[in-house]
Every structure is written in C-alpha cells, then in structure tokens.
Amino acid sequence: MMTLRQLSGRLGRMSAIALVIVLLFPAIASPSTVNGSATVKWRTNAIVKLTLTPNYFSGFGAVKAVIGTQPAPTHGPNAFLDGGSVDFGDIYSGESFLYKYAVHLSITTNSSTGFNLYGEGAADFYNQADGSSQPISQTVYYLPSTSGSPADPNTGFSPAFPFEKTAGVVAGNSYGTPPTITYSTYPAPIASSSVSSEDLYYDYELKVPAAATSGNYFVWIVYTVVAK
C-alpha cells in the first residue's frame, strides 16, 4: 500500500515529467512548419450614388427656338438655382423651347466596370386643368449640355432625344410627390459609362403640340443608375 509520502513523491516526479513535455511541445512544432496557399473570398455589395441637381448653373432657363441671336433665358416660378423644377414658365403651344442647364447628375459607384443611366417619364405630359395629356415622347426631349464652363452652346434647334414613358411600375406619382419606378426589365440606357464616377449635364427641350389644351402641365422625369 502506498503511503501519503510515497504518493506525493510519485506525483512530484510525474509532474516534473509532464512539465518537460509541455515545454518541449513548441520545439517539436517548429521544424514541421508547412508552406501553403490560402484563398479568402468575400463579397462587396455594389454601391451606387446618384445626386440630381436641377438648374445647376446661373443662366439656367427656357429659350425659345430661334435662328441667330439667342434670347436671354427665362423660367417659371418653381425653378431656382440648384433646385426646384425644370419650369419652362408661360409658353405657347406649337412652339419649341430649349431649357439650359436643366439637370446635373453626379454618379458614383464602386463598380470598376461603370454604370448604366436610365431616364424616363413617369407618365405623359399631364394637364392639371382638364386631365388631358400629351405623349411625353412628342413633348419633352434631352440633350447633352456643359457644366457651365465652357458655356452651353445649345439652341432650341440643337439635336435632342425624346424621353419615353416608362413601362415600369410607377408609385407615388403626383405633382408634389416624386415617383419611383420599379423595373422588371430595364429600358435602353440614355447613357453608359465604363468608369465608376462621372458628372453628366443635360439640357431639355419642350415641343408642346399645337393642339394641346391650355393649362399647367407637368411630368416627372425619373433617373435610375445601375452599376454594371
């Protein structure tokens, strides 16, 4: 039978042995280092930021389409520098107008392949007086402009492209409420960029058909930027 003294002596030796083993363990691991490759994968969510600034440069406003010396731009009461509407003000049907410095779109993405820009009317050009409307593709047009330096060279006869009425699902469309459009299929882009950030500048043209009825008209133009 083992006495308490014998037990403590054995435990003391065993502990000492065990302690050595512990101390030797790193020494054993060191020469067995293995070289290899590790692949780490992660997903970064695409980020798209669009800042829209109407009437972005002094001298913004509507100019009647004329040959020769260009009239000074004017605008309606709901347009102001760096904000408000693209407000052509009081116009006659059957005439054509250019709206200078209408919108500045500042687009930033983290996509190395760039972005597509879509621009569509949420509806047709709507007359609040009698509920009639004019097809937006026959009424509101866009064309490239400048930042203001150099000055915008466009006139009311400069080539422009019609906005189309969206085929997407429109929500929240009223005079005072900016709508949103939900797309199941995107339309043809109005601009496509292969760089991640870009500033785009547009003028608008308005050609209200001669048969249009009198009244206050409006339409929301909705811009959508999608990372490529």
Partner: peptide, 16 residues
C-alpha cells in the same frame, strides 16, 4: 444595386 432620383418638368401652356 441602383439609385433613383426624379425631377419635375412643368410649363403653363396657352393657345398660340
């Protein structure tokens, strides 16, 4: 990933 903004276009139209 997309971002959306809208601008209102308006005019007061009278017979020519």
């Amino acid at each position: 990933a997309q971002s959306q903004q809208a601008v209102r276009v308006e005019a007061s139209v009278a017979p020519n």
